[in-house]
Amino acid sequence: MEGLKVSDAKLVVYVHPSKANKVSQAILRELSSLLFKFNETFDGVVLAYDVNLPSKIARILPGIHPYFGVRLEAKLLLFHPKPNMLLGKGMVVKLGQQSIHVIVLGFSSATITEEDIRDEFKYKVKHGKEVFASTSHKRHKIKVGTILRFLVKSFDEEILHISGSLLPAHTGSIQWLDKNLEDGSHIDRSTKKRKESEGRREMQEHEKEMVDVAAFSMNTDRRHKKSKRPKSGEDS
């Protein structure tokens, strides 16, 4: 999905002397404090990290409080949607006559207002449920639970809020778009099947991406726990 990237980072983590016997824990705690916040240095919201914990050697910094300066390298999973990017993993959580509310990757909210919803979508209430139904394609509907592909207008880095748009013709329900976007063009049958298969995979990857984000950082914790096990022959 556009807006996601993995970045290699070289960091210096400052550890208080009181944590000298728990350096690894202090580093992990410091890295965890970066999660789900926009970081100007890395130019994105830090979603997860994978780090190789350093040796116990650290340099004491001069000053009133002699902190330990620990250098390390880490891989960071970053999210930074920019104007005119297409996001394809937004789940509709609420809609009304004048707006559609979306959650992206389970943490960032997005709003698409009436002025940014193209005219073919008309608001209706069917069987007590709200829906935006296309007047051009009867099966193209947007309702709670729909996975949307939409265009980014702007991103508020402070509150992690996205303003989106459904004005372009290639935006809307991913499930419908991937099955019907090529209609009217001269695409052979094998290409159409491939596109349908890609569409199904994209739908399935909506949940998988969230699992991958969690697994990305869990690897660090597992290695940390493993490193704490005493080696054979060492004093307990």
Rank of each mutant, 00 (worst) to 15 (best):
Q25W: 01
E157A: 02
Q204S: 07
V104T: 07
Y49L: 01
L61G: 10
K82V: 15
T135S: 08
S163R: 03
F121M: 03
F216V: 04
L61K: 10
K153Q: 01
S99W: 03
E30A: 06
A20S: 06
L72A: 01
E198A: 13
K124F: 04
G145L: 02
K195M: 14
D8F: 08
Q97S: 11
N52D: 06
K179H: 09
S7E: 08
V13C: 09
P230T: 02
M218L: 11
K129I: 10
P81I: 11
T220N: 13
E115T: 12
A58C: 04
N219S: 06
A58N: 00
H140C: 04
G44L: 01
R201L: 11
A74V: 10
G3I: 03
K124P: 11
H127A: 12
L95C: 10
F68T: 12
V93L: 15
Q97C: 05
D43S: 15
L11K: 05
V70I: 06
R194H: 15
L87K: 12
T146G: 12
E40A: 01
I117R: 08
R149I: 09
V51F: 00
E2K: 06
M1R: 12
H170N: 15
K129M: 10
A169K: 14
V144W: 08
S134T: 01
G128S: 04
V131I: 13
I147L: 07
E30D: 14
T220P: 13
K56L: 12
F36L: 02
V12A: 12
E209S: 15
K193V: 05
K141T: 04
F216Y: 06
L72K: 03
K89Q: 14
D235T: 07
S99K: 12
V51N: 02
E158Y: 05
S185V: 09
Q97V: 01
A133K: 01
K208Q: 13
D119A: 13
K5E: 05
H206A: 08
S227K: 12
M85H: 13
G172C: 00
V23L: 15
Y49D: 00
K193C: 00
H224M: 14
V45C: 08
G90W: 04
K5A: 06
P83Y: 00
K153T: 03
H161M: 05
P62T: 02
S24P: 07
I159K: 04
V131H: 09
L181P: 11
Q97T: 14
N39V: 09
I117L: 14
E114C: 07
I57A: 02
N180S: 00
V46N: 06
V92S: 01
F79S: 00
V23T: 14
K56M: 04
L53H: 13
M1G: 13
R118K: 01
E130L: 03
S33P: 08
D156V: 11
